[in-house]
Simulated assay, not measured.
Amino acid sequence: MGGLALLLLAACDTPPEGTTPENIAEYELAVASIGCELVGESDYLPVEFQAGLTREQSTAITSYMLSTGKAERLSEGGVKLTTGACA
């Protein structure tokens, strides 16, 4: 059982399928440039444009950031990054 838990934990540190560590770095920079919060379409569009990501990639990275503790859900909806320039 311990090996399975370790394997699952390691999987959380792997970027989402279809993205690279560079995509994640660009995403983090883009999110920081809009104030570190993603709440609606008006936040996702500039992040996707700046980072060169599709909507699928940006939502996958957002989920990845939440699962790894690098982002938190906002009480009013949306997500706030808690790493890098947004820490």
Score class of each variant (00 low, 15 high):
residue 1 M to C: 07
residue 1 M to K: 14
residue 2 G to V: 13
residue 2 G to R: 15
residue 2 G to A: 08
residue 3 G to Y: 03
residue 4 L to H: 09
residue 4 L to V: 11
residue 4 L to P: 01
residue 6 L to R: 14
residue 6 L to E: 14
residue 6 L to A: 14
residue 7 L to E: 07
residue 7 L to R: 11
residue 7 L to Q: 08
residue 8 L to W: 09
residue 8 L to P: 01
residue 8 L to A: 07
residue 9 L to C: 07
residue 9 L to N: 10
residue 9 L to Y: 10
residue 9 L to I: 07
residue 11 A to M: 09
residue 12 C to D: 01
residue 12 C to N: 00
residue 14 T to K: 04
residue 14 T to G: 00
residue 14 T to Q: 11
residue 14 T to R: 09
residue 16 P to Q: 00
residue 16 P to D: 00
residue 16 P to L: 01
residue 17 E to I: 02
residue 17 E to R: 03
residue 18 G to V: 04
residue 18 G to Y: 06
residue 19 T to F: 06
residue 20 T to M: 05
residue 21 P to D: 15
residue 21 P to E: 15
residue 23 N to L: 08
residue 23 N to E: 06
residue 23 N to V: 05
residue 25 A to L: 12
residue 27 Y to R: 05
residue 27 Y to N: 05
residue 28 E to G: 02
residue 32 A to K: 03
residue 33 S to D: 12
residue 33 S to Q: 07
residue 35 G to R: 12
residue 35 G to V: 12
residue 37 E to K: 15
residue 38 L to P: 15
residue 43 D to G: 00
residue 44 Y to K: 02
residue 44 Y to G: 01
residue 46 P to K: 14
residue 47 V to P: 02
residue 47 V to I: 08
residue 48 E to M: 15
residue 49 F to I: 05
residue 49 F to A: 09
residue 50 Q to T: 05
residue 50 Q to L: 11
residue 50 Q to I: 08
residue 51 A to Y: 05
residue 52 G to E: 10
residue 53 L to K: 12
residue 53 L to A: 07
residue 54 T to D: 06
residue 54 T to M: 07
residue 55 R to I: 02
residue 55 R to W: 05
residue 56 E to T: 04
residue 57 Q to M: 05
residue 58 S to G: 01
residue 58 S to T: 09
residue 58 S to K: 00
residue 58 S to V: 01
residue 59 T to N: 10
residue 60 A to D: 07
residue 61 I to M: 04
residue 61 I to D: 03
residue 63 S to D: 11
residue 65 M to A: 12
residue 66 L to I: 11
residue 67 S to K: 08
residue 67 S to G: 05
residue 68 T to W: 04
residue 68 T to P: 12
residue 69 G to F: 13
residue 69 G to I: 13
residue 69 G to M: 11
residue 71 A to V: 03
residue 72 E to I: 15
residue 72 E to P: 00
residue 74 L to M: 15
residue 74 L to I: 15
residue 74 L to C: 10
residue 75 S to E: 15
residue 75 S to R: 14
residue 75 S to A: 15
residue 76 E to K: 10
residue 77 G to H: 02
residue 77 G to A: 02
residue 78 G to E: 00
residue 79 V to L: 02
residue 81 L to T: 01
residue 83 T to A: 09
residue 83 T to I: 10
residue 87 A to D: 13
residue 87 A to G: 11
residue 87 A to I: 04
